[in-house]
């Protein structure tokens, strides 16, 4: 296993950073998708429109 992926990563540690940043980005992306979906569900439940326009 020394010469495999682990060995490569040990010699080129910048790729470990790369993978970590990619995982962080995927996590943020999935979180945003989830939040967006929940917001849509709440908006649907409340029903439109709930505008802040002043009633004169």
């Amino acid at each position: 296993m020394e010469g495999g992926l682990l060995g490569f990563l040990e010699k080129n540690s910048i790729y470990i950073v790369l993978f970590i940043v990619l995982v962080v980005w995927i996590g943020i992306f999935l979180f945003l998708i989830n939040t967006d979906k929940r917001l849509k569900a709440i908006e649907k439940e409340l029903g439109k429109p709930y505008s802040g326009k002043k009633e004169n």
Binding site: L32, T35, L39, L46, Y50, G52
Partner: peptide, 17 residues
Amino acid sequence: WWMWKVRYRSIIIQEYI
């Protein structure tokens, strides 16, 4: 843009509630 949309929609809902 995406974060902004999520944020302002949640503020509007919060004020509505």
